[in-house]
Simulated scan of single mutants.
Amino acid sequence: MGNPLVNANRVYLSAGSVSFNFANVTLYARDPQAAGRGKDIDYNGVYCLNAHNGKLLWYFPTAGDAMPTPAYAYRSLYISTGDGNIYAISARTGHKRWMTHVGGIANMSSPAAWHHRVFVSMSVIPDLYALDARTGRVLWKASIPGAANTGMGDVSPAVRHGIVVMDAVADPRLIDGHPTLTTIVRAYNARTGKVLWTHNMGRGPKVPAFKGGVPMIIHGMVYVGSPITSDYEAINARTGRVMWTWHVPNAGPAGAGRGAPTYYQGVLYISTGPDVYALNPKTGQVLGHRHIGGRFGIVSPTIVGGTIYLGNSWDWINALPVKSVNPHFQLRS
């Protein structure tokens, strides 16, 4: 369920079965025989293909599902898996450089690399880990208090300028008989793990499927959504001060705000709900939008030249002119 990662003339893909997903984990705790552990695991692992002809160059099998997108850095691929392991793999040969077992489950939280550190978040045991990229040694770990459900394991950490940002759904409560959650955003010092600030994005109904919003950092600002409230916020990365909040219209019962925004030529592009939006990153003002249909989950627009590429729940791959979303767009040479 990860995204293709392209580097030079190679494409790296991760694969994993969702047969043993979080719901199956809780079922396994109650009735191991009914959980179906081990189904559809034959293709778990990381694949490397020739970008020009699709030829398989190597395959690195893993016992746990490899749902996150690998991080590429220092000629290595870094991936976390559903059996609680974190791997460094040679990007050229597919050989294992190191493996560290931390426990928990890797859902869709993709690793991030910065200054010879790798940041990985896991669920069930809800922790964020900083590892030495060369040896796999755990340098520090931290958590978000009250992280619930798949929580931190569904959200990829963002790191920039020595700050790591994570968020998770937390503090489950029944209100008027209905399950609710909050979304907590927390920033850490990337070198030490010290908490820099914590922000609560608000409480809302427990939505189905993926419940977190993937953060993105650019120009000293954190941009992050919350499907619980269907809001996106711009937060100062150093202070935690909220600069603006934008509520997604037409969010639907599943909520909106899962995918990280894409920053392109001074504008934020967000695919959420059934629509694609262009926002002013300084004010949150909507500059334009286009209705596509279906639903956009953990999807961030990929923009090349004047074209936006993205997929949706209708299993479509869409190619949209940027100008059809943002009428003010002018392609820079």
Rank of each mutant, 00 (worst) to 15 (best):
R37I: 13
G38P: 06
G38M: 06
K39N: 14
D40A: 12
D40Q: 07
D40I: 04
D40G: 07
I41S: 13
D42Y: 13
D42P: 11
Y43K: 13
N44L: 01
N44K: 02
G45E: 01
G45H: 05
G45I: 07
G45M: 06
V46G: 05
V46L: 11
V46R: 02
Y47S: 06
Y47R: 07
Y47F: 12
C48F: 07
C48G: 08
C48S: 12
L49A: 06
L49R: 00
L49N: 05
L49H: 06
L49G: 05
L49D: 04
N50M: 09
N50F: 10
N50P: 07
A51P: 02
A51W: 01
H52S: 15
H52T: 15
H52E: 13
N53G: 05
N53K: 03
N53P: 03
N53R: 04
G54P: 13
G54N: 11
G54H: 09
K55S: 12
K55I: 14
L56E: 09
L56N: 06
L56R: 10
L57F: 02
W58Q: 00
W58M: 00
W58T: 00
Y59F: 14
Y59P: 04
F60I: 01
F60A: 02
P61D: 04
P61T: 01
P61I: 01
T62C: 06
T62S: 09
A63Y: 11
A63H: 12
A63L: 14
G64A: 06
G64W: 03
G64H: 03
D65K: 13
D65F: 12
D65I: 04
D65V: 08
A66C: 07
A66G: 04
P68R: 02
P68M: 03
T69E: 01
P70A: 10
P70C: 10
A71H: 01
A71F: 00
A71S: 06
Y72A: 10
A73L: 05
R75P: 10
R75S: 14
R75M: 12
R75K: 15
R75C: 14
S76I: 05
L77Y: 00
Y78T: 02
Y78L: 06
I79P: 07
I79G: 09
I79M: 12
I79F: 08
I79Y: 05
S80E: 07
S80K: 10
S80V: 09
S80N: 14
S80F: 10
T81S: 10
T81L: 06
T81K: 05
G82I: 04
G82F: 01
G82N: 04
G82E: 00
D83K: 00
G84I: 06
G84R: 10
N85W: 07
N85M: 14
N85A: 15
I86G: 08
I86A: 11
Y87V: 11
Y87D: 08
Y87W: 13
Y87K: 10
A88Y: 03
S90H: 08
S90Q: 08
R92Q: 15
R92S: 15
T93A: 15
T93E: 14
T93W: 08
H95M: 13
R97F: 12
R97M: 13
R97N: 15
